[in-house]
């Protein structure tokens, strides 16, 4: 084991955004307890892209899901460890993600930590339009901005504002629905709806989706895989999170779309100064975009450090094998793409 243990196991230095310490996640199975993640430790420095590489089943995704408390218990067991996270919005307060209650983690989810999934086709609700799905993020976490965008933030505090807030937060009951029909309130409501539309369009435009105002009325099945992944990204960055977890976001896409999505992620990461935990099994890809890399094998981190150093001087035999197995020997040239059909 080389470079396995970070030096700052018990301290949380200032330049970190998150730090995983000795994380252990086990699963009950018929053969007994499976040690999916067995003592994983790594840090994510604020503003960097951290890569987590390893073969299928080595515990990458489970590690990522632990950040969000998404590991189902049972059959999963969080056997130990800490995931410390610095919430920038609440005055750099450091919290342990694993020990938060359901309500506390809900406040962080979406707003401070966001996640992009492997298969964009499965991660969007097939029964709702893109608009509704992205609007939810704004409605849940950025109601102030919605009011600001609608230029009616002056009524935020009074009685009408309270009703409209309920509407934005989707906590409507019959009385509020009736109140919303009263002409002046209705006018405000329409303004808010338009403001949300505009925010959604902006979010979509940021991911370079052509004709966002048309795309937002579509259902997921009417979009291509690359478009769906862009929608997922738009949804994830809509709240400007501190940490973006990308769980193999390009695995389900073809090479050209993959390259574009990667470009998009790195560009957005630079613009918003978001930290990214990039999970992948594709080494060449990780080398291209990540600042630092941790290599996982059978639930443990076998090697970690600066991505160039690791690729040039792999120390652990597993890393060596991985690098040999991938087509890394000669650099790839730029992919030529043919102009195809774009949605009008």
């Amino acid at each position: 084991m080389v470079q396995t243990t970070p030096s700052n196991l018990n301290s949380f230095s200032n330049d970190l955004i998150a730090s995983v310490e000795d994380l252990k996640v086990y699963f009950h199975s018929k053969e007994g307890l499976t040690h999916s993640v067995d003592g994983v430790s790594f840090d994510i420095i604020d503003g960097e892209i951290m890569g987590l590489v390893g073969e299928t089943g080595c515990g990458k995704s489970v590690t990522a899901r632990s950040f969000m408390q998404l590991v189902q218990t049972p059959p999963g067991v969080i056997a130990g460890g800490k995931i410390r996270f610095k919430s920038k919005k609440t005055g750099n307060q450091i919290v342990d993600l694993l020990s938060l209650t359901e309500n506390q983690i809900r406040e962080l989810r979406g707003e401070r930590i966001a996640m992009i999934f492997q298969d964009p086709g499965k991660a969007l609700n097939p029964g709702l339009t893109i608009r509704t799905q992205i609007a939810e993020v704004f409605q849940e976490h950025r109601e102030d901005d919605v009011f600001k965008k609608a230029k009616i933030d002056h009524i935020h505090k009074n009685f009408i504002g309270a009703i409209l807030q309920k509407y934005i937060k989707q906590q409507t009951n019959l009385i509020i629905k009736l109140m919303l029909l009263v002409p002046p309130i209705r006018a405000y409501k329409k303004k808010l709806d338009k403001a949300i539309d505009k925010l959604v369009i902006e979010a979509l435009a940021e991911t370079q989706i052509p004709n966002p105002e048309k795309v937002m009325e579509r259902y997921p099945h009417e979009l291509s895989g690359g478009m769906k992944q862009r929608v997922m990204i738009a949804q994830a960055i809509a709240c400007n999170p501190d940490l973006l977890i990308a769980d193999e976001p390009t695995t389900a896409l073809d090479v050209i779309v993959q390259a574009r999505i990667l470009e998009l992620i790195t560009e957005l990461q630079k613009r918003h100064k978001t930290s990214v935990l990039y999970i992948s099994h594709d080494l060449s890809l990780v080398r291209k975009i990540c600042d630092r890399v941790a290599v996982m094998f059978a639930g443990k981190i076998v090697e970690s450090g600066d991505s160039d150093t690791i690729f040039k001087n792999p120390v652990h035999p597993y890393t060596k094998g991985l690098i040999k197995a991938s087509f890394m020997t000669h650099e790839r040239g730029k992919l030529e793409e043919i102009e195809g059909i774009e949605t009008k």
Partner: peptide, 12 residues
């Protein structure tokens, strides 16, 4: 389904 997880992640 994954979109249920995705909704959880968005803080629903």
């Amino acid at each position: 389904r994954e979109y249920v997880d995705a909704a959880k992640i968005m803080g629903a």
